[in-house]
Write a protein that binds this DNA or RNA. Structure first.
Lengths: 112, 112
DNA sequence: CATGCTACCTTGCGTTACAAGGTAGCATGC
DNA sequence: GCATGCTACCTTGTAACGCAAGGTAGCATG
């Protein structure tokens, strides 16, 4: 077993959290999202993002508007809905709780 | 969509990291593992753990020995193999990298 | 020897990340 | 005005996972 597999697993769910976080204060389209995530060392392909964005939009957590590009086809710019903002705050709390849980386990072991 | 689902997703992979961490310095059997995780607010069922432990053991990251109980059937006490120790250090690094990535995204938004 | 508890394990379901492949708008060069 | 290439959006198929539910069996108790 490669650590790589589990590291991929670790990112599940967290990826969605990162995307919702990035959309909190910005309107962003997919390719830009990928670049932002890459800048934070989270590699993603668009085959992962498009289904995720569609899923979140159907759940009415995201909305989008079309915007024409200066060089190419039009883009879907996503942003959070009001429900999305609430959702983000829940995920934020969950993230903090979970990191605390993990850290307590790591610390617990060191001291025993 | 419920935040609950995504929070469940967040735990994927991280769960394995916690288990390997808990086994780093202790021999533990399944029910005890569940209690330890519950103490850290990570709820797990044994239907999740047994397949995971078997998988890790087949990958030669975990080993176990049978120990008779004073009150009931014998127990499988798990511990890390040498490869498991190496594996843990990789996961530990991956965990730190990932939390840094997520925090940078959260921070990045706040400042923009 | 029947009952209940504990411990281990398996099966089936729904969900997900990702690679690979597909469609179509738009600009550029001829 | 059309061929080429780039960009952007989307779908399909695969493998892996968490978990609920259900199953088997050792051991103690009365």
């Amino acid at each position: 077993m490669e650590a790589k597999n589990t590291i991929t697993q670790m990112r599940r769910g967290i990826l969605e959290f990162c995307i919702v976080s990035l959309l909190a204060d910005n309107e962003i389209y997919t390719a830009e999202l990928i670049n932002r995530l890459k800048a934070a060392n989270l590699i993603v392909t668009d085959g992962t993002l498009y289904p995720m964005l569609n899923r979140l939009q159907k759940a009415q957590l995201l909305q989008y508007r079309w915007e024409e590009s200066e060089s190419g086809p039009p883009r879907k710019y996503y942003s959070l809905t009001d429900a999305g903002v609430v959702y983000l705050s829940k995920l934020d709390t969950a993230w903090q709780d979970m990191t605390e849980s993990v850290e307590s386990i790591r610390r617990g072991n060191k001291s025993e």
